[in-house]
Amino acid sequence: MSPIPLPVSRGWSSLLSRLKLRHCRVVGATPTVLGRVWIHGPGEVRVGHRVVLDGREAPIELHAMRGGCIVLGDDVTIEGGASLEALQSITIGAGARLGAFCKVMDNQHHPLRGNRHERPASVPLVVEAGVTVGPRAILLPGAHVQRGATVAAGTVISRRIPPAVTVGGSPPRVLRREVA
């Protein structure tokens, strides 16, 4: 038996989670933060209810740069090593899961041609409700993963993914469709 009674220890871990999320603009009810979460940049980060951020194996990075906005919906689960970088907006819908070492960015940071040190325009990135993103997947600007879709491990996405499909491979293609 732990010397601290359970409700108190739970209260303590919830308090610790809130402490780790203190740089967020909005934090919903009962967040669970394990391990390290880095929240930096002058932009704003909004976190919904009951999110689970598991940064035990590697830190989770939520980087909202100037004018950027990261919105995590309710019941979002993010595993360790995931990195979200927003210059404009990244929206993660309710119940979505991001796997370990995912990279989600709404700006390429360098243009394909011309001066590599200029920053190209951002394209808002949306992950809708109930989406599962596999480990080491990369979501590039313009990615719009619709409701209930699954992105397989290591897939690179930069366009709209229709609802309730599984995409995988490189270049990505639809592997499976959910039969309604």
Partner: peptide, 8 residues
């Protein structure tokens, strides 16, 4: 040249 994200 540019090597895109996640490519082998």
């Amino acid at each position: 040249s540019v090597v895109a994200a996640g490519s082998v």
